[in-house]
Design a protein around this nucleic acid. Structure first.
Length: 420
RNA sequence: CGGGGCGUGGUAUAGUGGUAUUACGCACGCUUCGGGUGCGUGUAAUCCGGGUUCGAUUCCCGGCGCCCCGACCA
């Protein structure tokens, strides 16, 4: 990608009507655009990050045995009446079709996935099965806030697991705990993310959330200093402020944002749909379920909140929009300048031919070096390469990592070693 | 849904009861080239409706929008 043709631009000033850091920095750097409160466009740079997060999640869900589907965004009122959530789910967006037929914009998909599984998963031989999708969800939030951390429309991975009994649900639930930690590790959030006991709502005693420590968070969690498990404030009292895992009372309060959650649904959704399977003896038994969510945009916003400095974003390697930000710095001498351009073009070509993702700041007229460096810092790719008169004197390009001050020269021929 | 704050070019801002300042951006020309370079020319704005007034972007009322706090968040 060439910066000269990228249709979005960075701005010198952050938007005045955003206070939340993730929105300010992501808008300023040209990753997202706000359409209206709680509704954002993902621009080319932002979409690349979102897709990186999406693919990490997809890989880990597939590794855990998940099968990906794409369910509809619209669903008929009937399904929601079956579970009672047409009335009880306050954040449900409702709309009308022809003949005043009523629909919901799905905020979650239990009402859709259960009837779906019911058609195909009939026998103990079909269980367990894990179905997931990555798709936009809609919630009629009373108040959208905190940039992309709480929107009315947001991308979410939701997996639903189906089991023959509670023991098998428990087994898979633990597997998902591990898979989620892998995801947050690859997204660069592991050292600030805690498995957190949270309310199980009306369905089960507890659920688990993955909470990432940041002042931008809406939740307060108590982190056990002995076993590193956390407790959401909402259930701290009932646990008598003791760690449910190791009984320790050595807890530390932190503000945090919920980046994922896992939840044992038990038979609370299979029951209203009358969803049962046939066991080995030919008897009907209830299907046990779990659900497992991650908000992709929320992960992206959380990374922006956690990984930045006063110059811009510092993307973790696996989610960066590009690995390399290549800059050409013009020289006075026309001949020298031409040489710089040709060299930069060659480096750009070599990197791409070797599948190293690179954004190339090939702008020349009117764009000074300072502006290019400022943009590189703001956009926040992990490696900055500079081709300039200074570097060419050494037959080299300059390498600097985002977030570090150290600069070094490497020979042009060795640029491809950046791959490792 | 309750409370508060704010609405001026694409972005960020100044100011005013007599149509509007500056910077960035954008267009053109020159300049500069390792941290948002400098100069010139051009482009572009008072959220909507009503009221007061000779005249409202400014004052008043209503609406809408955005942000923040709270409530809410199966």
């Amino acid at each position: 990608m060439r910066l000269s043709t990228l249709f979005t631009k960075t701005t010198k000033d952050a938007p005045k009507d955003e206070l939340s850091l993730n929105a300010r920095i992501l808008i300023q750097a040209g990753f997202i655009d706000k359409l209206t409160a709680g509704v954002y466009t993902y621009l080319p740079l932002g979409l690349r990050v979102l897709k990186k997060i999406e693919n990490i999640i997809r890989e880990e869900m597939n590794r855990a045995g998940g099968q990906e589907v794409l369910m509809p965004v619209l669903s008929p009122k009937k399904n929601w009446e079956t579970t009672g959530r047409w009335e009880n789910f306050s954040a449900l967006f409702k709309l009308y079709g022809v003949d005043n037929k009523e629909y919901a914009l799905n905020p979650t998909h239990e009402e859709i996935v259960v009837p779906l599984a019911q058609k195909h998963v009939l026998s103990y031989k079909d269980l367990p099965v894990y179905i997931y999708q990555i798709q936009n969800k809609f919630r009629r939030e009373k108040r959208a806030k905190s940039g992309i951390l709480r929107g009315l429309e947001f991308m979410m991975k939701d997996m639903y697991s189906f089991h023959a009994n509670e023991e098998d649900l428990d087994r898979f639930y633990k597997e998902m705990q591990k898979a989620y930690f892998k995801i947050f590790k690859r997204c660069g959030l592991l050292d600030k993310t805690y498995l957190t006991f949270a309310s199980g709502g009306s369905f089960s005693k507890y659920s688990h959330e993955y909470q990432t420590i940041t002042l931008a968070g809406e939740d307060e969690i108590y982190i056990c200093q002995d076993c590193q498990i956390a407790i959401n404030k909402e259930i701290a009292d009932e646990l008598k402020n003791k760690c449910p895992s190791c009984e320790s009372k050595n807890l530390k309060m932190e503000k945090a944002i919920e980046v994922g959650n896992i939840f044992k649904l038990a038979t609370n959704f299979s029951d209203p749909f009358g969803y049962q399977y046939i066991d080995e003896t030919g008897k009907k038994k209830p299907v046990w379920m779990g659900c497992y969510g991650i908000g992709l945009g929320r992960v992206m916003g959380t990374i922006a909140e956690v990984c930045h400095d006063d110059r811009g974003i510092i993307w973790p390697k696996e989610v960066a929009p590009f690995t390399v930000h290549l800059i050409q710095v013009a020289a006075k001498d026309a001949e020298e300048n031409n040489k710089i351009k040709l060299t930069a073009e060659k480096v750009y070509k070599d990197l791409r031919e070797n599948s190293i993702e690179v954004i190339f700041d090939d702008r020349d007229e009117g764009t000074g070096a300072g502006e290019k460096f400022a943009d590189a810092d703001l956009i926040g790719c992990p490696i900055r390469l500079v081709v300039s008169e200074r570097s060419l004197d050494q037959d080299s390009v300059e390498v600097k990592k985002r977030g570090e001050e150290k600069k070094e020269l490497i020979k042009i021929k060795q640029v491809l070693s950046l791959k490792s």
